[in-house]
């Protein structure tokens, strides 16, 4: 198991917020993360829909020092320590423990627990989040109101292509695009705008 990227600090059925561990890179916007639920043994899959960097202490606001990042580290080493990165992920799928290992593209029976660890999904895991792309329906019809849905869709489609690599990437992208097209009904303009940005 690789080192955990983040740890859950807020949790609900639809989404969780996780704080990125020191020394770890924050997962990209629109990338898949997974959580092994300590209580149930289920694996939850979430899509990173929001990344935020802020001060640990509500009373201390970041301010501009006019110094490069390295200068800051050399002369104000506390500044970086006092910043934290949190990510919000929309829960879109889960794999029940002890089942045949197939992923269900729907919400899990229970939200993850606070302090559960969050890992970035390997391409293998992203591949399992494929056809029939039911999770796209959740993204389109019940979007996170704080996030521009189409940008998230662009990021998701790019992930699909990247996970499958050069050989079959395009093929899977077309399949996902078809699923999306059905969801968006006749809104060709919107679909094109999304696909344009995937290229």
């Amino acid at each position: 198991m690789p080192e955990a990227t983040a740890e859950i600090i807020e949790s609900s059925t639809r989404a969780f917020v996780a704080e990125v561990h020191d020394g770890q890179e924050a997962p990209d916007f629109g990338s898949w993360v997974e959580v092994e639920q300590a209580e149930t043994g289920d694996t939850l899959y979430g899509l990173v829909s929001h990344v935020e960097v802020s001060s640990y202490e509500p009373g201390r606001r970041p301010r501009a020092f006019g110094q490069s990042r390295e200068e800051l580290q050399r002369e104000r080493p506390q500044v970086m320590e006092l910043l934290r990165t949190t990510v919000r992920a929309q829960v879109l799928a889960y794999r029940p423990e002890g089942d045949d290992g197939s992923v269900r593209q729907t919400l899990p029976p229970r939200p993850p627990s606070i302090h559960d660890f969050v890992y970035c999904c390997a391409p293998e895991a992203v591949k399992t989040l494929g056809a029939p792309y039911d999770f796209l329906r959740t993204l389109v019809e019940d979007p996170d109101p704080a996030v521009p849905t189409d940008d998230l869709l662009v990021a998701v489609l790019r992930q699909v292509r990247a996970a499958h690599g050069e050989a079959t990437g395009e093929e899977h992208l077309v399949e996902a695009g078809r699923a999306l097209s059905r969801l968006l009904d006749d809104d060709h303009e919107r679909l094109h705008s999304i696909l344009r940005r995937v290229e």
Partner: peptide, 9 residues
Amino acid sequence: FQYGTLEAP
């Protein structure tokens, strides 16, 4: 603080 270095505080 280890000023002038990149060592963690």
